[in-house]
Each structure stands twice: as structure tokens, then as C-alpha cells.
Design a protein around this nucleic acid. Structure first.
Length: 202
DNA sequence: CTGACGATTCACT
DNA sequence: GTGAATCGTCAGC
């Protein structure tokens, strides 16, 4: 298992990064509890020109401030007052791109995930959907701005190789408010994987 | 200060 | 398939 350097997220092609993240591992080590999941669904948000992005039009607020950090930082925000959604900032400083993690396949720390999710069984609902996976991994808004170059939060490559035809694309979920940008094919997922959320997962 | 709303999830029919 | 939950964020006054 090889830890990814944060330089990986400094690249400028966020769509390529979102695709390359499929099959990678995300590891969290909070309070001495390790959880690992394989990334099976991502969405790209392309900053100031993307109506679906929180940074559309160059908007800078207390919440979106971390999107303007250099790539390799976590951007976590609260949705519907309940769900903590986890993103990875990409691109160079002041280019507010981000990639939302929408689903993971659990790899290790299943007991921790079940405990955090208050689940008796490790079924697909454990890490399917952006709010669910964040809860399972221990992600919350207090982590927003944290580097993915440290020991407690990082991405790793264990040699898992995704065949090109295994990757599916679709419009992003839940961004109907974004006008024609809602149609952009910026969602990427592993075809047929049982942990992928949403309707269009073939 | 106030009100509208959300990159969702879950229970229920 | 439908609707409620729930509160931080942000624009507007």
C-alpha cells in the first residue's frame, strides 16, 4: 500500500483526478481508530465557472475558504443540517476545484464504521452515499482544511487496477439547480459495484 | 437579524 | 415513490 503524495492533487485536470481516484483507498485514523475504504464513486466540481460548485463566480466565504487552498486538503461541509459531505480540494492555490466522494467499498475497520453508523450489519448502506460514507469514516466539518498529507488522513494505492470499461460516467446527483451545468458528465463510478449510489450505476 | 434553502438520508406507504 | 428531518450558511434588509 503506497500513500499518495499531495502533489497528486495539485494537478490542474480535476476531471482526470476524479477518475484516477476510483479504486484508490482512503484511510482515516482518528482517536486511534483506523478505517479504510475503496473509492467507487466521485464527482468533480470545477470552481468559478461551474454553477454547481460552491465557488461558482469566485465566491469566497468562511465555509468555502478552504476550497482556495492548494490541492490536497479536505473540504467538508454540512448539508441539510445533518449530513457531512467530504471533498478533496484539487488544483493550485486560488483555483477552487474539488472532488466529492460519493461512495466507498469498506476494506478495513468495519466494526468502527458500523459503530459510527449505528448499524448491526455491514450492508451496502454502510458507505453508500456521501453523507453515509462520511459518517462511517468519521469525517465532519471540523476537519475542513485538514491536509491529506498527514498520518491521520490520506489516500493510498494498493495496486488495484480498474479496467477502462469498468468506469461509468453520468451527470452529477442533486444539482438540478445548476441549470445546464447539471447535465455535465462529471460523476464517475465503478460499474456494477454494489456500493455505488443513485440510479445510474450500470 | 431574518428567512430560504441545501453536492441527503431514512422511514413509511 | 413521497415527505420529513434539521441547522449552518449566506444574501438581503
Amino acid at each position: 500500500m503506497k500513500k499518495l503524495d499531495v502533489d497528486f492533487f495539485l494537478r490542474t485536470d480535476t476531471l482526470s483526478i476524479a477518475q484516477a481516484l476510483l479504486g484508490k483507498l482512503i484511510i482515516s485514523r482518528f482517536d486511534g481508530r483506523e478505517a479504510i475504504g475503496r473509492i467507487v464513486e466521485t464527482e468533480a466540481y470545477l470552481g468559478i465557472t461551474d454553477r454547481a460548485s460552491h465557488a461558482y463566480g469566485g465566491r469566497r466565504t468562511a465555509r468555502t475558504r478552504v476550497m482556495y487552498l492548494p490541492g490536497g486538503h479536505a473540504y467538508v461541509y454540512l448539508c441539510y443540517g445533518i449530513h457531512h459531505l467530504f471533498n478533496i480540494v484539487t488544483n493550485r492555490q486560488d483555483i477552487p476545484h474539488a472532488i466529492l466522494l460519493r461512495a466507498l467499498e469498506p476494506v478495513a475497520g468495519l466494526d468502527i464504521m458500523m459503530q459510527r453508523r449505528q448499524k448491526q450489519k455491514a450492508d451496502h448502506s454502510l458507505t453508500r452515499g456521501p453523507g453515509s460514507l462520511s459518517q462511517a469514516m468519521g469525517f465532519h466539518t471540523g476537519l475542513s482544511g485538514m491536509s491529506l498529507g498527514g498520518h491521520s488522513l490520506f489516500i493510498a494505492d494498493d495496486g488495484f487496477h480498474l479496467q477502462p470499461q469498468q468506469m461509468g460516467t453520468s451527470p452529477r446527483i442533486g444539482v438540478d439547480y445548476a441549470g445546464e451545468d447539471a447535465l455535465l458528465p462529471y460523476r464517475f463510478f465503478v460499474r456494477g459495484n454494489a456500493w455505488v449510489s443513485g440510479q445510474k450505476n450500470g
